[in-house]
Design a binder for these strands. Structure first.
Length: 288
DNA sequence: CTTTCTGTTAGAAA
DNA sequence: ATTTCTAACAGAAA
């Protein structure tokens, strides 16, 4: 579910709500989602106060004032991190538009409680997401394995060019490769390719300099704009307060199969590229 | 009812 | 070395 703009939206929402707060309890209801001994996980987090939240690609990293362990959180496809304050909890749960039973629900697998009575719910329908504590060296190692982050880093055209260097795979596959560029997922890969007028199935090394420049600009633009609108809720994404993203209605190709292209008379066509559902206007994005 | 698809990615296979 | 395929899981859609 969440790609860079969604994860960044969650990060910003959590920053203002949990930084400085001390964790009083960690309720692990589904041990599989904790990638380490659960007892150790709970004991380390207990009585720790969140000092900062960083992001690399789609990975969130929480640091603490009392120790140097970093909490890594990956939401994968359907993970959610929803913060609920004491008042709402006392009133009987979070007023979630599509859910009447509030939180926690059957997908709330890990629940953090804070000193002020608020809680943070890690929900994940498909259970692909995970949490893990790592020491500084391991954190550095993991961060270093990621490619350039288009928002955290400078993301110059030269960096972009270098990331694509010599790739014969489809350009979309390279955009999705987190070790080259960190944070782009299936939605924004399709959106960026459309904006740049490039067919996602084209071999990366066949793009001209002009096309690469258009794609580089398209990536920067789409990600920044999506963050500005609080991300895309296609299905499960919720921000840190349980709200939906507002970028969904601004999507121009993703999920618009058989609908009219916003730029021309063409129809959006759905196929499979790099093993993923891929949306294209064949008029605006010729294979050449 | 059965089959296919889904926003991710680690790991295996090619 | 790089690229492609599959599995992990639950549920919605066809």
């Amino acid at each position: 579910m969440p790609e860079l703009p969604e994860v960044e939206t969650i990060r910003r929402g959590l920053l203002t709500n949990i930084v400085g707060k001390t964790i009083t309890n960690v309720d692990v209801r589904k041990e599989r989602l904790v990638r380490m001994p659960v007892k150790q996980f709970q004991q380390t987090l207990q009585n720790s106060s969140v000092s900062d939240i960083e992001r690399r690609g789609k990975l969130l990293m929480f640091s603490f004032a009392e120790h140097d362990q970093t909490l890594l959180v990956h939401l994968k496809m359907t993970g959610q991190l929803i913060y609920v304050n004491k008042e709402i909890l006392v009133a009987g749960g979070h007023p979630w538009p599509s859910l009447t039973d509030g939180l926690p629900n059957k997908y709330s697998h890990i629940i953090f409680s804070f000193e002020d009575g608020s809680q943070l719910f890690f929900n994940d329908q498909r259970q692909f997401g995970y949490m893990q504590l790592v020491p500084p060296e391991e954190k550095d190692r993991i961060v270093a394995a990621y490619g350039v982050d288009p928002i955290v880093d400078e993301f110059s055209f030269e960096q972009f060019q270098e990331a694509l260097q010599g790739r014969t795979a489809p350009i979309k596959a390279v955009l999705l490769d987190q070790t080259r560029i960190a944070g782009i997922g299936n939605i924004y890969a399709d959106e960026a390719c459309f904006l740049a007028g490039i067919h996602p199935a084209r071999a990366a090394h066949t793009l001209s300099i002009e096309e690469l420049k258009r794609l580089h600009a398209a990536i920067s633009e789409i990600l920044r704009k999506a963050i500005k609108f609080g991300g895309t809720t296609f299905r499960d994404f919720r921000d840190a307060k349980g709200g939906k993203g507002n970028f969904t209605e601004l999507l121009v190709v993703y999920g618009r199969s058989k609908k009219a292209c916003v730029k021309c008379a063409g129809i959006i066509h759905k196929s499979k590229v790099a093993g993923r559902g891929t949306h294209v206007c064949l008029v605006c994005q010729p294979m050449k």
